[in-house]
């Protein structure tokens, strides 16, 4: 298959980041920050920082003020946590939820996608922790967007999936007995099986499972995605259109094969 690729990749991934927890009284906390920056002016440079204000109970204006103060000191804030999700706006950094503390053991043994901290990063985090809180226990590394616990039970849909409907099953396979209409979405963590015609959009392996596959009785899809790699209707070859097919990922390209 030779065509110019128009794939755009999106994947849910987890990264360890440093969550900075300002403490009350804020003025005193900023004095410690300033002292730290005086000793090493590049302390926060090129580091991704999340501000966790859960323990402060600030209102929105105070949080905005805090963010301004920190940005003014050269802290690059990639996100804000511990606030109401409804505060999301252009003025504040993106709001993150579901942060989890991680311990080095879990990182080392866990999902391959979560890169363990390098000794250098760990040292840097501990240095910051020492400076700011006077003890290692006060700084916390958090996981942003943790990969949810998976249970692999399939979701069986026994009705047609109509235009405007969206089936979302992050945990396993989706089996549709019926068709998936134009303007409908099926999103699965695992594979998707459609015993009918696919006219809508199917996303298998939505959390990056590249071994997921898509099966259907008749392919008229608007879009197929496997493991974050997309293919639009325009890219689907004529000889597989309207046929019973299965689609899988091979060398970062979706391969569609006839079933009969």
């Amino acid at each position: 298959m030779t065509h110019t690729s128009t794939h755009i990749r999106f994947r849910g991934r987890s990264f360890p980041v440093l969550a900075l927890e300002p403490e009350a009284p804020i003025a005193g906390w900023f004095e410690r920050i300033d002292a730290c920056l005086e000793r090493s002016p590049a302390f926060f440079s090129r580091k991704a920082i999340v501000i966790d204000v859960a323990k402060l109970g600030l209102d929105r204006d105070s949080v905005a003020e805090l963010v301004d103060q920190l940005s003014g000191r050269g802290v690059r804030i990639m996100g804000l946590t511990g606030v109401e999700p409804s505060w999301a706006c252009d003025e504040l950094p993106p709001i993150l939820t579901n942060g989890r503390s991680i311990s080095p053991d879990i990182v080392a043994a866990g999902d391959e996608e979560v890169a363990p901290l390098t000794p250098g990063e760990r040292a840097a985090f501990e240095e910051i922790a020492q400076t700011l809180g006077g003890g290692g226990g006060n700084a916390e590394e958090q996981l942003v967007d943790p990969v949810p616990e998976r249970n692999a039970s399939p979701l069986v849909v026994e009705t047609p999936v109509r235009s405007g409907q969206s089936i979302f099953h992050p945990d396993g396979d989706v089996i549709v007995i019926g068709s998936v209409s134009s303007g409908a979405d099926v999103v699965a963590g695992g594979s998707v099986h459609v015993y009918g015609t696919v006219r809508g959009r199917i996303m298998a392996g939505a959390y990056g499972e590249t071994r997921a596959r898509i099966f259907c009785r008749r392919l008229e899809a608007e879009l197929l995605a496997v493991g974050g790699y997309y293919m639009t209707a325009d890219e689907i070859r004529d000889e597989v259109r309207g046929r019973a097919v299965h689609a899988r990922l091979e060398d970062e390209t979706i391969k569609i094969t006839k079933l009969d």
């Binding site: 109509r162 405007g164 209409s181």
Partner: peptide, 16 residues
């Protein structure tokens, strides 16, 4: 025609 059919499909979803 396709646009009418797709809109009808959406309505059937709402009816259900």
């Amino acid at each position: 025609e396709v646009s009418s059919v797709r809109d009808s499909d959406r309505i059937i979803g709402l009816l259900d």
